[in-house]
Amino acid sequence: MFYAQGPDDLLTAAEALAMSGRDFMQGILDGKHPAPPIGRTLNYKLHEVGDGRIVFRGAPLFDHCNPMGTVHGGWYGTLLDSAMACAVMTKVPQGSGYTTLEYKVNILRSIPLRMEVDCIAETDHAGRSTGISHGEIRGVENGKLYATGSTTCIILNP
């Protein structure tokens, strides 16, 4: 897997719309398409792609802390938004796209710095115009639940 270094590294809209959402996501996992730079910035990457299911794996670093020295809620939110929206993406047909309309995050406990977590997301519904999914962040080693989330995405048919 490689991260996009600049805008020219990303697929064009025409290239992305020429494949299904699942093929697009599988292409990132297989290293055929660049991973989005937000993953490099926040230290997470695509780990698994399935039909209506996505897993990202990562670990928060000191750069992701708030002024109190704990992991900023935005790290949890961005990781969950990425996974939940990409789970919907795996259900989007060729010629369509998507974007997040809204998402909700519930933080249950603080993630220790540098501790590896999985963010697992599954699609609950993918229709003509909307997709809904839920996700959770769990410790890789300990299996503890650190946060949950839900999202609604709009499916775009250009």
Rank of each mutant, 00 (worst) to 15 (best):
M1P: 11
G6W: 09
D8C: 09
D8H: 15
D9E: 08
D9M: 10
D9S: 03
T12W: 02
T12P: 08
A13I: 13
A14F: 10
A14K: 13
A16Y: 13
A18W: 14
M19H: 06
S20E: 11
G21C: 02
R22S: 12
F24H: 14
M25H: 11
I28H: 14
K32V: 00
K32A: 09
K32N: 06
K32P: 06
H33E: 10
A35V: 00
A35E: 07
P36D: 09
I38F: 14
I38K: 07
I38Y: 10
R40E: 13
T41H: 15
T41W: 15
N43C: 12
Y44F: 15
Y44R: 01
G50R: 01
G50W: 10
D51V: 12
R53P: 14
F56R: 02
R57T: 09
G58A: 07
A59V: 10
P60C: 00
D63Q: 14
C65E: 02
C65A: 06
N66Y: 00
N66F: 08
T70A: 02
G73T: 00
G74D: 12
G77D: 02
G77P: 01
G77H: 07
L79F: 06
L79I: 09
L79W: 07
S82M: 01
A85F: 00
A85C: 10
A87F: 10
M89T: 00
M89H: 13
T90F: 11
P93H: 01
S96Q: 14
S96P: 15
Y98V: 01
T99G: 11
T100I: 08
Y103M: 09
N106V: 04
L108H: 00
R109Q: 15
S110L: 13
S110M: 07
I111K: 02
D118Y: 00
A121V: 04
A121K: 05
E122M: 02
H125G: 07
G127P: 04
R128W: 12
S129N: 14
T130N: 10
S133M: 05
I137D: 05
I137T: 06
V140H: 07
V140D: 01
N142E: 12
K144H: 04
L145N: 02
L145A: 04
L145C: 04
A147H: 03
A147Y: 05
T148C: 03
G149Y: 06
S150I: 08
T151A: 08
T152A: 05
L156M: 11
